[in-house]
Amino acid sequence: MEKVFARSKGLTDVPFSFCPGCTHGIIMRLIAEVLEELDIIEDTIGISPVGCAGFSQDFFSCDFIGAAHGRAQAVGIGAKRALPDKIVFTYQGDGDIAAIGTQHAIHAAARGEKITSIMVNNAIFGMTGGQMAPTSLEGMKTVTSPYGKDVSTTGYPIDMPTLVANLPGAVYVASVSVDSPKNIAQAKKAIKKAFKVQQAGLGFSLVSLLSTCPTNWNMSPSDSLKWLRENMMPVYKMGELKVTEEVESL
């Protein structure tokens, strides 16, 4: 019999350290498969931030640099400018890219830095114990908003991809989800396009992926996926938010 599905060469043998049912693992698999399909594993430098995404270096078989909280893009830009032939991507959570590292995300896009950013949005600070994030939804209960997020004092959820898509330097921006096999296939396409954009040197690319956090949402893995579909997908604008003409012709 022929193997039709197996672990990608882009991943190491190390089992993921995430909680059961956390969709971080699906996203990592997609990136690894894209790296393998484009044959760029050895030419890629990943940047890992702080948070659950901070374990990335153990799981990917490409090179990795660890950055301080929120500074993954700053480090990535440095690596890309010093080694323009390498493919540089950042793998960040929403707390990293939309809270502590917002300025880097905005300015990397404004300058059209030729890196790819992967944003994993689960509307919460996962590793630190489920605190409210700028991406948390209105009325969402977290450990720091036990009565539900009050937008009059803590603000509305930040839709990072929409924000970045407005800047001319960003040439490819997509917001996808990994809640079903169909959406996972779409997510992979978006990630592949984002890496191709960088290979062609067109500019900044961002793929935001809606993800779950069963542990901190206090739900079972399958209920988390349902909650994501019903609550997060209507709030965040989904699909390819920006595709320039050059990107379309890739």
Binding site: V4, F16, F18, T23, G25, A185
Partner: peptide, 21 residues
């Protein structure tokens, strides 16, 4: 039936699927 849906949904890449040629 070797549809690989389970493997694609698995967050821990714990599933391998084999199919006849």
């Amino acid at each position: 039936i070797g549809c690989t849906l389970c493997a694609k949904m698995c967050p821990d890449v714990a599933i391998e699927v084999y199919k006849d040629k």
